[in-house]
Amino acid sequence: MSSEALTTTGYIKHHLQNLTFGQHPDGSWGLAHGAAEAREMGFWAIHLDTMFWSVFLGALFLWVFRKAAVKATAETPSGFLNFVEWVIEFVDENVRSTFSHKNDLVAPLALTLFVWVLLMNTMDLVPVDWIPQIAHLLGIEYMKVVPTTDPNATFGMSLGVFVLTLFYSIKVKGIGGFAAELTMQPFQANSPILKILFIPVNFFLEFVSLISKPVSLSLRLFGNLFAGEMIFILIALLFSGGVVFALVGGVVQWAWAVFHILIVLLQAFIFMVLTIVYLEMAHSHH
């Protein structure tokens, strides 16, 4: 741990700091040392740890499932293949029960989101100091291992979903249909004058609800995982408080981890289901 980890505040701050690469105010490129420097880098900086872990876990998912897909036949599946098929059938069932239109993208999208988010969330169950400590020994100053506790990651995914929602809304209903959906409801009128008067009100309401979808989608995931991570960090503080505190901390950490398994799974599932629901809404006429 770095020098600022000696205090409680420092320890927490250190754990909440991403490994940021960007341009310093003086014009040189490099890693940010501390939160202030990272903030100064502005938008054109990148969280190397978030990117590394999310891409690593996504690639892991693709590799494992690709291996299964190549081996998949109509014969009796082996244990590993069985597990993959079980996951796929679970996702497929969810998609079928929610999404009623013909679209080859939705099911793979749901699968990718579910497994990927699940894997990223699962990193939360690794004791908070293990990987940062190893990184520290390797000379890496900051290491946040749970990509879903980084709003960039969750917003990145929900942005992708949002773009898809817009794309399919326009593709299915046409620009006119989509525009009508945004302006002709919830307030409806028969006289043209009233209709025109209602347009700004309707648009305001519909636009807010449209924007709130990706925002709530990403913030829900981020908030849950961030809170869980925060509690792990606070519990980890107990370990420096003597034998009794350390023992209590061990028990509490175990208990929270068990409970957190539920959150890890549930948030991945919710993210997947809401994605399917948003795409279903994009496909259906109101």
Partner: peptide, 30 residues
């Protein structure tokens, strides 16, 4: 916790993963 380029990087990774899954994984297993 700043919003920065990671957002775009993450979106690109997301698109690539979904595309790969849609092309090379899902149809085979299904």
């Amino acid at each position: 916790m700043n919003i920065n380029l990671t957002l775009i990087g993450q979106s690109i990774a997301f698109i690539i993963f979904v595309w790969f899954c849609m092309k090379f994984i899902w149809p085979l297993i299904i």
